[in-house]
Write a protein that binds this DNA or RNA. Structure first.
Lengths: 207, 207
DNA sequence: CCAATTATACCCCTAACATGGTATTGGGTT
DNA sequence: AACCCAATACCATGTTAGGGGTATAATTGG
């Protein structure tokens, strides 16, 4: 049995979703709210929802802004975003805020139900176009850098671990001067001129 | 019409997949290989595949190691990993190498076909457990920091953009000294003592 | 084998950063 | 009014980092 909550301002969508889910076996659509604020009030005298299906474009707080507030009140609850928006910015903001699923609004209700069951079992699901954006985030961004030697890569790793030049020298068993020499070469190859920029490039996968 | 290639060493899996896909309308299963090396040879006198379905555990190069080689030869080809492995390490290595889909081996062939069609349309699909690992990658890692003021956050953003103190002062329209003061407070709140560490924490989502 | 590359090490000098202070101003709270 | 705190600004001092050299083994690739 899954306890579900809906947050959706559009009356047509809200009532049709609520009607569909209340017809389903194994789903208890306990809370139906028109905004994050409304949900936070209505959830006071209700059982903790397992899963929340929330829109983004809402009066008052957006669905994304609502995620931290909801997670604070119900840390165990999984939040699925159901939105017309599919831009990378909103997708990543939602995921970074803690959403575990992201569906486009044209998703058939049967698939939404399937997604709810998947997430209830500890999995995750996204619409294909959303998944693609997420996957592309990891794909190598080819920025044709000059090839780095093994030692140079070790030095970069140490920099990304937050070490100072002295500490890097100590970790790699070489002198401070050699570390500096490697770093000079790294800066030339990566076209940067500060430690911070190397860390940024590395963590952004641009090396 | 989708041109498909299979890379799978297990004969039973390979032949049954090949048999299934050759029965499908709209799928041309042109290359069936037992290893990445085998695929690279067989693809010399074959049409460029749109999509490659590849195992990870292969004789010789692994499926993940094969991705860069395949992408080099066929930059436009999408690679889907079909593996028994579901550990985060392999999942992220595959995605970082450029895979656009990741399915577990127990996925029904009909769903694999669906995934191929989704990817052919520019989307992406992953098994629920895989998607969850990916989504969790973005989720906030709460590390209970003292709250940062608006200005402090602006300073951090500027640091993560790779700016020097002077440049930060210029961007925010405040003096160098004030920037320093903010940074002192940031270091105290985040328990760090270098610019690099702030950048690292920020990019790792630990703020 | 020779040339190129890599890894090592040292020098000097300047710029940037880190840390310790102190102090004023303006908003908001009690 | 008294208080807190964020934001502003300045000084002094020491450390770390960046940029310019030069040089010597060791290794690698033609």
């Amino acid at each position: 049995m899954v306890t579900l909550a809906l947050i959706e301002d559009d009356e047509v969508v809200r009532t049709s979703l609520a009607a569909f889910f209340s017809r389903q076996e194994g789903v208890d659509c306990s809370i139906v709210a028109v905004s994050v604020e409304d949900f936070l009030v209505k959830s006071d005298n209700a059982v903790k929802p397992d899963i929340i299906l929330s829109d983004i474009g809402l009066p008052g707080l957006t669905g994304i802004e609502g995620i931290p507030l909801i997670k604070k009140k119900f840390p165990e609850t999984s939040i699925i975003i159901l939105s017309v928006y599919a831009d990378s910015d909103r997708v990543f903001k939602a995921l970074c805020a803690g959403a575990v699923g992201y569906l486009q609004k044209d998703t058939p209700v049967e698939e939404i139900l399937e997604c709810i069951n998947i997430i209830n079992k500890g999995g995750s699901a996204m619409s294909p176009a959303i998944a693609r954006k997420v996957v592309d985030y990891f794909a190598p961004k080819r920025t044709y850098n000059e090839p780095l030697t093994a030692k140079e890569q070790q030095v970069i790793t140490a920099m990304v671990d937050g070490l100072s030049y002295k500490m890097i020298a100590s970790r790699l068993g070489i002198t401070l001067e050699t570390v500096r020499q490697h770093i000079k070469n790294i800066y030339r190859k990566l076209h940067v001129n500060s430690k911070g920029e190397v860390i940024i490039k590395s963590l952004k996968g641009e090396i």
